[in-house]
C-alpha cells in the first residue's frame, strides 16, 4: 500500500542544513497500523509531513528517497496531483485539536469543504454527508452541531470533528500525529477506540505517531522507533516489548511507569540519562552513544553509523551490539 524508501528531508537553519529525517524506510501494508515512536524532535512529525508533502517550502525539502503509494511515486507528483491525494487518499489528523480547526468557519462548512473538493458533491449532498460523518465519529445531535463554530466544542469533540474531516473521503491511509496527546486520559481511550473501529469499518491503514508507548502497545501492529531523524529499531509489536534490541528502545520501555503496590518502595522508575542532541551536534557513529550504557569503541564513529540490520526474525535494529540477537539459523 505505502512504502517509504530511503527518505531524506532537510531543513535550512542558521547553523546550516540539517537532516530532520535521515534515510528512513518502512512499509505499511493495507489495513495495518504502524506506530512511529520517538521523543519530540526525533523526526516523527517531519516524516508524516513528508508523506503529505506539506514540508514548509521556504525552509525544508525532500532531498531524496521515494514514497510509493499504490504503485505511484508521490515524491514526483505535481503539486496539483498531490492535492488530489491529500484529504482524499491520504489524510492526516494533528496533535492540537484546539487550534487545528478554523475558528471562523462552522464545523459543517469545514467538513463539506473536503467533500465538495474531492467528490464534487453539491452543497446539499455535502451537508447530508457531513451529518452522517459526525454521526459516524460519535457526535450527538449532528444536525445541530454542523452549525456550531469550533469554540463551541470541547477538545475531544473537536478531535472527533478532525477525524470526520480526515475520513470524509474514505482515505486509504490515515496519518495520526499525536492525536490524543492534548486530551484527557478518558477521552484518549475513547478516541483510540473510535479510530480502531473506523479502521476496521473503512479498511484503511494508519500511521500512528506518538511518544507514548502505551498507545502503541494498544493500537499498532508494527513499531518503528526514531532517534535523531533515523529509524533505529523496527519490529512487530509483541517482539519489541518482549525483546527490544536497541538500548534506546529498552530505555523507553523501562521508563513506562508500572503499578506494583508491593514493590513500589524498592523500585524506582528508570530514565534515560541526557537529552536528544541538537541536530547540528549529532555525534558521528551511533547517534545514541553519549546516552548509552553499553556504548563501546566501535560506536564512536570508526566503523561508521550502525546500519539498520536484521537482528532477529522480522526485527531490525541499528545497533552494533543488539541486546537479544538471534540469527536466522536459530
Amino acid at each position: 500500500m505505502l512504502s517509504v524508501k530511503n527518505l531524506v528531508t532537510t531543513f535550512q537553519t542558521r547553523q546550516g542544513s540539517i537532516k530532520a529525517v535521515d534515510n528512513i524506510s518502512f512499509d505499511l501494508p493495507k489495513g495495518s497500523t504502524l506506530g512511529i515512536v520517538g521523543e519530540s524532535g526525533s523526526g516523527k512529525s517531519v516524516t508524516a509531513l513528508s508523506i503529505m508533502r506539506l514540508i514548509p517550502k521556504d525552509t525544508g525539502k525532500i532531498l531524496q528517497g521515494d514514497i510509493i503509494f499504490n504503485g505511484q511515486n508521490i515524491t514526483t507528483l505535481t503539486e496539483s496531483g498531490m492535492r488530489g491525494m491529500r484529504g482524499n487518499k491520504i489524510s492526516m489528523i494533528f496533535q492540537e485539536p484546539m487550534t487545528s480547526l478554523n475558528p471562523v468557519f462552522t464545523v459543517g462548512n469545514q467538513i463539506q469543504e473536503t467533500l465538495i473538493l474531492h467528490q464534487q458533491l453539491s452543497l446539499q449532498q455535502a451537508q447530508k454527508k457531513a451529518i452522517e460523518l459526525l454521526q459516524m465519529v460519535g457526535i450527538p445531535s449532528p444536525e445541530k452541531r454542523i452549525k456550531d463554530y469550533p469554540h463551541h466544542l470541547s477538545g475531544g469533540m473537536r478531535q472527533r470533528v478532525m477525524i470526520a474531516i480526515a475520513l470524509a473521503c474514505k482515505p486509504d491511509i490515515l496519518i495520526a500525529d499525536e492525536p490524543t496527546t492534548a486530551l484527557d486520559v478518558t477521552i484518549q481511550a475513547q478516541i483510540l477506540d473510535l479510530l480502531k473501529n473506523l479502521q476496521k469499518e473503512l479498511a484503511m491503514s494508519i500511521i500512528m505517531i506518538t511518544h507514548d508507548l502505551g498507545v502503541v502497545a494498544e493500537f499498532c501492529d508494527d513499531v518503528a522507533v526514531m532517534y535523531c531523524g533515523k529509524i533505529i529499531e523496527k519490529a512487530p509489536i509483541h517482539q519489541i516489548f518482549a525483546q527490544p534490541q536497541h538500548p534506546y528502545t529498552q530505555g523507553l520501555i523501562k521508563s513506562i511507569p508500572t503499578f506494583h503496590p508491593e514493590k513500589s518502595h524498592e523500585q524506582r522508575l528508570s530514565t534515560i540519562p541526557g537529552t536528544l542532541p541538537p541536530f547540528h551536534e549529532i555525534p558521528s557513529g551511533c547517534s545514541f552513544q553519549n546516552r548509552c550504557q553499553y556504548a563501546q569503541e566501535a560506536c564512536k564513529g570508526l566503523q561508521g553509523t550502525p546500519p539498520l540490520a536484521l537482528a532477529a526474525q522480522a526485527h531490525w535494529a541499528a545497533c552494533f551490539y543488539p541486546l537479544h540477537p538471534k540469527t536466522h539459523q536459530d
Partner: peptide, 29 residues
C-alpha cells in the same frame, strides 16, 4: 502560521484557496 491553515492544506486545498478562503477570512477581523 496557524495550525488550522495546515489542516486546510492537509485537506488538499490549493494554496490560492487556502489564502483566499481560510487566511483572508481570519485576517479580515
Amino acid at each position: 502560521n496557524q495550525d488550522y491553515i495546515r489542516t486546510a492544506r492537509a485537506k488538499g486545498l490549493s494554496e490560492v484557496s487556502v489564502l483566499f478562503k481560510h487566511v483572508l477570512k481570519n485576517a479580515m477581523i
